[in-house]
């Protein structure tokens, strides 16, 4: 836990010392810049701590039921949440350091941006794989088997998401453009960013779907209510992740906006993450309490 808090502190300190580059172009005074940064840094820190709280509650719950038939599946979901939670401050701190590197050494800017992209990908990638495996384990404990086929709605959703995301990547600014989100050729973005993201989004959404199925098939109104929070929280976190990636693909269009809409987008995304992690934490707290009274 202390490692996590130290990481959050590193992120907050670095971000306060080095306000985001996208805010610099609005010709604010240094004090205003830090104040605006603070309105972003503090909620991000609070979200990271609420994610830690949710993870700790969920891990404690998974530990309590580890010897039951659902135990291993819940433990895998807990491990996924751990990777997702610890990935937040690691990613934020690494991002702040790389932003500083990019700002002080323009030759290293492309490398820093590429590294940032991959660091942002690796944690949710591992996390959603673990959560999906755990959710699959949960439905295996059901007496009546669940179909492994995609529903028409799910399949159409994946096709639309893939088409839109690919179009946004292909239609973005050329690689040499410094404002471009990735600093990589299109084929490499598709192969190493777009495909992994689409894969984990599908895995994550399917995990939430499996938790919903599990919830609907088992008895227990109070227990189901707690699982409902968990599944909905995961869906919101995945949607926030999708929106962030879509925004990165249209960075050059967003940075041309004035400061108010940019801050609005940032606050909306923070709000989404806060609701998502808050719901996971609430569900985890309820599940843990069931095993304690």
């Amino acid at each position: 836990m202390w490692i996590f808090i130290a990481l959050v502190a590193v992120y907050m300190g670095l971000s306060l010392l080095l306000p985001p580059e996208y805010l610099r172009k609005y010709q604010m005074s240094e004090a205003s810049l830090r104040l605006v940064s603070l309105t972003i840094i503090l909620p991000v820190g609070a979200i990271q701590l609420s994610a830690l709280y949710g993870f700790l509650k969920f891990k404690a719950y998974a530990n309590k039921i580890k010897k039951t038939k659902e135990g291993p599946a819940f433990m895998q979901i807990a491990n996924g949440l751990m990777v997702l939670t610890f990935g937040l401050p690691i990613n934020s701190a690494a991002s702040s350091i790389l932003n500083y590197v990019a700002r002080t050494n323009t030759d290293l800017q492309p490398t820093a941006i590429i590294l940032k992209g991959y660091i942002a990908l690796i944690f949710p990638f591992i996390a959603f794989l673990l959560i999906a495996k755990g959710a699959e384990g949960l439905i295996k404990t059901l007496k009546r088997p669940v179909s492994k086929q995609w529903t028409t709605f799910g399949l159409l959703g994946v096709i639309v998401l893939t088409a839109v995301y690919t179009e946004l990547i292909v239609a973005r600014a050329p690689v040499q453009d410094a404002k471009s989100g990735y600093h990589l050729p299109t084929w490499l973005i598709l192969a190493t960013i777009a495909i992994p993201y689409l894969y984990i989004w599908c895995k994550g959404l399917r995990a939430a779907y499996h938790i919903f199925i599990y919830k609907n098939r088992i008895k227990g109104t109070v227990y189901r209510n707690a699982l409902d929070y968990l599944a909905k929280g995961l869906v919101i976190i995945i949607f926030a992740s999708i929106i962030i990636q879509v925004l990165i693909t249209v960075t050059e269009r967003i940075t041309s906006l004035s400061v108010a809409p940019i801050l609005l987008i940032v606050y909306l995304l923070l709000g989404l993450y806060a609701v998502g992690f808050g719901m996971v934490a609430r569900g985890a707290k309820k599940l843990k309490k069931i095993e304690e009274v």
Binding site: I65, T68, K69, E70, I218, K219, G220, T221, V222, Y223, R224, L287, I290, E291, V293
Partner: peptide
């Protein structure tokens, strides 16, 4: 208990 607490029902009653 299982009607309300699902798989946690038996553990709840045992406790």
């Amino acid at each position: 208990s299982e009607e309300y607490l699902g798989p946690a029902g038996e553990r709840f009653i045992r406790r």
